[in-house]
Simulated scan of single mutants.
Amino acid sequence: MLTNHSPLVVAEQFGTLETLYPGRIDLGLGRAPGTDMATARALRRQMAQEDSFPQDVLDLLAYFDDADVEARVRAIPGTGTHVPVWILVSSLYGAQLAASLGLPYAFASHFAPAMLDEAIVTYRNTFQPSKWLARPYFMMAAGMCAAETDEEAVYLRSSQVLAFARLRSGRPGKLPYPTHDLVAEVPGELLTQVEAALSVSAVGSPSSIRDQLLTLVERYRPDELMLTGMIHDHAARVRSFETAAEALVDLQAQRELV
């Protein structure tokens, strides 16, 4: 959430990570505060009234670039690390900015998919090649909950649905236990809103997961797919990701055979 932080500080922090772990660090930049304004002020101390996000991105890219002998301020470490920078948002604004700067674009469709279709088209159609990227590169985020059966997966996923509903109701907290009766705990209109927000997801048995992931990939054609799943039981969460990984490997192998 770059609006909460100084670009120089971010450059030095991620320059440190890149120095420690070369080639393993990506940096995703979001424009939204991601918190309440009191916390945002505490993070950055002085909040500018104007939208400085585009300039902050450019400043950050400059800090990661090769050393400029005339630069009065440098990120140490950071200069020359060339940390890959992504624009990470859920709006057309982010698609337009990523396209104009020639940067990779990641969309938070796992919880805010409303503008996904339009954002992808905008990004791909208006992309300007840059020294960082020659062609559009798009990552899509999707929810995922896999289990032995469709019914069990729906049950395990109820923890995430409950958590999201409570967050939207102003009652955030720890991830709740799953429930067999969401309707009894979440009002109908709110449940409909939450399900819409979490609609870019794959939920079910291994075969169902495979089919749903295939549908997502064929529809949106992402260059990368990031999966996330909030499951209360740790072992079930691990099995869920293992199932998804197996499905994606299978899909990748089939695509290579076509």
Results as ranks from 00 to 15, higher is better:
L2K: 02
L2S: 06
V9A: 12
V9C: 00
Q13S: 04
L17R: 00
E18F: 00
R24F: 02
R24I: 07
I25W: 00
G28F: 11
G28S: 13
P33M: 10
P33E: 14
M37C: 01
Q49I: 13
E50L: 07
D51R: 00
D56R: 10
V57T: 10
V57L: 04
V57G: 05
V57Y: 03
A67E: 13
D68C: 05
V69D: 15
A71R: 11
A75P: 08
P77K: 06
P77H: 11
T81I: 05
P84V: 13
L88A: 05
S91W: 07
G94W: 04
A98E: 04
A99P: 09
L101H: 06
L103A: 12
Y105I: 10
A106F: 06
A108G: 15
H110T: 04
F111L: 14
P113M: 03
A119Y: 08
A119N: 08
V121C: 08
N125A: 13
T126S: 15
F127C: 11
F127I: 11
Q128Y: 00
P129Q: 09
K131C: 05
A134T: 13
M139V: 12
M139H: 01
M139Y: 01
A141M: 13
G143A: 00
A146G: 09
A147Y: 02
E148T: 04
D150S: 01
R157C: 00
R157S: 09
A163G: 02
A163M: 06
F164A: 08
L167P: 00
R168C: 01
R171Q: 15
P172S: 09
K174G: 13
L175V: 00
H180E: 12
D181C: 03
D181T: 13
L182P: 05
V186G: 08
P187F: 02
P187N: 03
L190T: 12
E195H: 05
A196C: 00
A197V: 06
L198C: 07
S201A: 14
S201P: 02
A202K: 01
S205G: 11
P206A: 09
S208A: 15
D211P: 03
D211G: 01
Q212C: 15
L214Y: 03
L214R: 14
V217T: 12
E218P: 09
E218D: 15
E218I: 02
R219P: 03
P222L: 13
D223V: 06
E224D: 12
L225T: 11
G229D: 04
G229T: 08
A235I: 00
R237M: 09
V238Y: 03
S240N: 03
F241L: 13
E242I: 08
E242N: 09
E246D: 14
A247L: 09
A247R: 03
A253R: 13
Q254S: 03
V258K: 08
V258L: 09
